[in-house]
């Protein structure tokens, strides 16, 4: 194989149309390898459709998708990717040992020692049948299978959603440690915004099938400010604010306005400003599907030569 691609994912004009309409539309971005990326969006935003196209479960209607430079239309791509679906499908009648054997037989790059270590660190007996395990244990076995494959890219669809807080904490730690150990690129969809803030350093935000935001969190989040001040004008948000800055979301309470903005320059002293958390920025974008799209230069497929269209 030639030079490894620095991009774990490159999507260009990616779209998927079902009979009821577009589930994913005109999606263009790239994810540099080595990041842990959150895929965020309300239900029905196209997250699962995107993950399905990346794992060849669904064929895109338009556009192309490459993983490490290999188009997903090439079956060879499957060797480099592991996908863990939300319901963590495993054979309930298999024992843990049999499940790992399945992984070994099906995957040429299988790392048995690694998979066993993940099982052992949770004290899950190898003789237990999958069907008898707790949710946390089952997720652990699914992680063992996924990491045992030694993927370069791990795709997870809401991996922690059905776990109790203890198992969630333990398995998030396991996920992060293994990803750090092997330099695995991770893309995971989740609704747990505050947890994503610590775990992820890259963001993809989808809403209504379109990409709303993409880039490194440390670049995207500080590009926003929470502004409050005295309401004025027709809808309460001062004209001056709209003219010079990009307003993502705004709200008026009595005589006060609050707005999440992308400042286009210095802000007037008459307003109070605060730095929002990642969760606040994400919520604002999710609530405002009409807000202008924000794609960081690095995440653009053309390397940032063009202005992003709203």
């Amino acid at each position: 194989m030639s030079e490894p691609s620095p991009w774990a994912i490159e999507a260009e004009g990616l779209g998927k149309k079902y009979r009821r309409g577009w589930a994913l539309r005109d999606c263009s971005f790239r994810l540099p390898a080595g990041h842990i990326c959150a895929l965020v969006g309300p239900n029905g935003a196209g997250k699962s459709t995107f993950l399905s196209t990346a794992t060849r479960l669904v064929q895109p209607t338009t556009g192309t998708l490459k993983l490490f430079g290999v188009p997903v239309s090439d079956p060879a791509v499957l060797q480099r990717v592991a996908f863990l679906a939300q319901d963590k499908p495993l054979y309930p009648r298999f024992t843990v040992a049999e499940t790992l054997r399945l992984g070994r037989e099906l995957n040429p790059r299988w790392d048995q020692a690694l998979a066993e270590r993940i099982v052992r660190s949770g004290n899950v007996p190898f003789t237990a049948r999958i069907g008898t395990l707790s949710g946390g244990q089952r997720t652990r076995i699914a992680f063992a299978l996924a990491f045992g494959k030694r993927p370069e890219l791990l795709l997870l669809d809401e991996p922690m959603s059905d776990l109790d807080p203890l198992a969630r904490h333990e398995l998030s730690g396991l996920l992060m440690a293994e990803a750090a150990e092997h330099g695995t690129t991770v893309l995971m969809s989740s609704h747990m915004l505050s947890e994503m803030e610590v775990m992820c350093d890259y963001l993809l935000v989808l809403a209504e099938g379109r990409l709303r935001m993409a880039g490194q969190t440390e670049e995207l989040v500080p590009a926003h400010l929470l502004v409050t001040g005295v309401a004025s004008g027709d809808d309460g948000v001062p004209e001056e604010l709209r003219r010079q800055h990009t307003v993502v979301e705004s709200k008026v309470t009595g005589r006060q306005f609050t707005a999440l903005v992308r400042p286009g320059g210095p802000l007037s002293d008459s307003w109070e400003t605060l730095s929002p958390s990642m969760e606040e920025v994400l919520l604002a974008y999710l609530r405002s599907p009409d807000a202008p799209t924000l794609i960081a230069d690095e995440a653009r497929i053309d390397g940032g030569q063009q202005e992003a269209a709203a």
């Binding site: 842990i36 396991l174 992060m176 440690a177 775990m199 350093d201």
Partner: peptide
Amino acid sequence: PTAAQVAATTKVNPNT
């Protein structure tokens, strides 16, 4: 502690 150790206990992104 290594980035992986920190990640295991605190879930902090290794790049952080």
